[in-house]
Amino acid sequence: MSTPPIISARGLSKSFRGPGGRTVEAVADLTMDVAPGTLTAFLGPNGAGKSTSLRMLTTLLRPTGGTATVCGFDVARQPAEVRARIGYIGQKNGAGQYQRVRDELLSQGALYGLGRAETRRRVDELVEALGLGDLVRRPTMKLSGGQRRRVDIALGLIPGPQLLFLDEPTTGLDPQSRANLWEHILELRRRYGTTLFLTTHYLDEADQFAERVMVVDRGRIIADDTASRLKTDLAGDRIVLALDTDPASAVAAVRRAAAAAGAGGAEPEAAPAGEDAHVVVAVDHGERVLPALLRELERDGHTVRTAELDRPTLDDVFLRLTGRSLREERTDAAETDPSAEATSGRAAR
């Protein structure tokens, strides 16, 4: 028997009373098993239900339907048991503004029931690991966004949890701070074998770090696989070639060459651009097809002026799944989670 899942959800759902008494279903039917030691990313646009899912799994919100166990305990019936075993780094800053960094870290240890000596040992260790040494005596309101985020990470790690939830850990950070934070997260994972479950709307993060990506849209998981398999299965690579011939013969040439290069069935299309004939062809494993394709075209006497390989991003996957682009959604005014929308909706009346 394999190890039991550390997170197991069955038909978990959450609806809120939205504006005008309408019911907003933030999470519709969350069913999943997460294995211990893995790094899983919940990817989706704002308002997809990512945070609401996380808040149910961390006992902050009571589900309206379905069940979930975290570390073997039911989130609704045994919340105290769940809390004792998990760490959580929320979307917002976890340290009180008037609290000094070190004070807040010490308090966190006390809240998790660690002894005084043990707390101090861990605080020192995390201050060192996260480079907070110069900041420990400062009140957190005097820190920059990136520094505050590092304090959040330290707070989340004080209990030494076997399972750490992170809600948009790098949102709002500059690229350097993001990279830096990821280095820390991955290092801690190497060191302690912590299971990580995070939400993000950064495609590249999910792509680069997560072993498993769940794409969430409108309260449902619409895809669940490794990033590379999602991309291969759902988007595929695109090869763009410029040939010094007329478009029709270029397309014919590429079709013949593609078949010979082992990508039979690929349907090249002419792409109107510049004076050369551009041809676009969608293939699987473009990195293997491209060299063969070039050899075939040369053998047939064609001159290839330029060759490009477009690898799909998770955005292409999202586009394929939903017909909408993740990037467009992100620039929308829809900045909030349905839970926040529902509450602000209440507040507005």
Binding site: G94, A95, P159
Partner: peptide, 8 residues
Amino acid sequence: ERMLVAPV
């Protein structure tokens, strides 16, 4: 919120 997730 952070304190609510703690086993307190």
